[in-house]
Amino acid sequence: MDLTPTGARASITPPAEHFTGRVRQDPIVDAPQPARVRAAFVTFEPRARTAWHTHPLGQTLHVISGQGLFQTEGEKIRVIRPGDTIWIPPGERHWHGAGPDTAMCHLAIHEALNGKHIDWERHVTDAEYDGEMA
């Protein structure tokens, strides 16, 4: 067993090449092999968002606070709120982040395939972010 006390892990500012705006990650678990799970709280300031990306084994997002946006390629942008849980299948191209006027925090959970958790792509443009919502 490995117990990590509250506050033992520092918050992380993720690389700007994968995010737009102010984002903070608070790691929960990055399990050693043979386990493959990784989980973190991710907090987005208003209008902050991920770049387009996919996950080789999928991803689960659970919204903790605020109001955010989520989009799968080819679909309308969805508003996400506290208590919402999203399952993103393996290889599904998507992005997620805060709403235009509110911060948003979600729990992000995904697994690695051959050591890889995520495949990053290009930034979501302002025009895409401001696109049509469902």
Score class of each variant (00 low, 15 high):
S65W: 00
T50M: 07
F41P: 05
E17N: 02
G58Y: 10
R81G: 12
F41N: 05
E111M: 12
G58M: 12
W87I: 12
D2S: 14
A10C: 01
P56N: 04
P5W: 06
R24A: 13
G7K: 11
G68D: 11
K76Q: 11
P27A: 13
R122P: 10
R81H: 08
G21Q: 09
G115K: 08
T20S: 09
A108S: 00
E73S: 11
P90V: 03
P46N: 01
R93G: 07
R93K: 06
P100F: 14
Q25M: 13
L113C: 14
F44W: 05
G99A: 15
V79T: 09
H94G: 04
D26C: 12
F19Y: 08
L57T: 11
G97N: 06
V124G: 05
H117D: 04
G7H: 15
G66P: 15
A134T: 03
G68A: 07
G66A: 13
T43M: 10
P46Q: 00
R38F: 15
V124A: 03
I64G: 13
E17A: 01
A16M: 05
I88T: 01
P90E: 05
R49F: 03
P46L: 04
V63C: 11
L107I: 04
W95I: 00
D126W: 05
L69N: 12
L57S: 06
A134G: 05
H123G: 01
H62K: 02
D119G: 04
T125A: 07
T60W: 06
G115N: 09
T13P: 10
E132C: 02
E73N: 15
T85E: 11
I77A: 10
G115V: 06
E132N: 00
H94F: 00
H62T: 13
T4S: 04
F41A: 01
M133R: 14
H94L: 01
E73L: 04
D30N: 12
P34D: 02
Q67T: 14
F41S: 00
P90Y: 07
T6Y: 10
N114V: 03
D126L: 01
G83H: 11
I77G: 00
Q33P: 15
S11R: 14
G115R: 05
P90I: 02
F19G: 03
G21T: 05
N114K: 14
G21L: 10
G58W: 03
G7W: 15
M133W: 07
I88E: 06
D30C: 05
G7R: 09
H18M: 03
A8D: 11
P100T: 12
V42C: 07
D26H: 11
E111I: 01
K76V: 15
I12T: 14
D30Y: 13
A103K: 11
E17D: 03
T72S: 15
A108E: 00
T50V: 09
T102Y: 12
F44E: 07
H62R: 12
G131V: 01
A8G: 13
K116C: 07
H94E: 04
P89I: 04
H106G: 04
R22E: 09
V23Q: 10
V63E: 08
K76W: 11
I12G: 09
I86W: 07
P32N: 13
P34G: 00
G83N: 12
D2T: 13
P56S: 02
D130T: 01
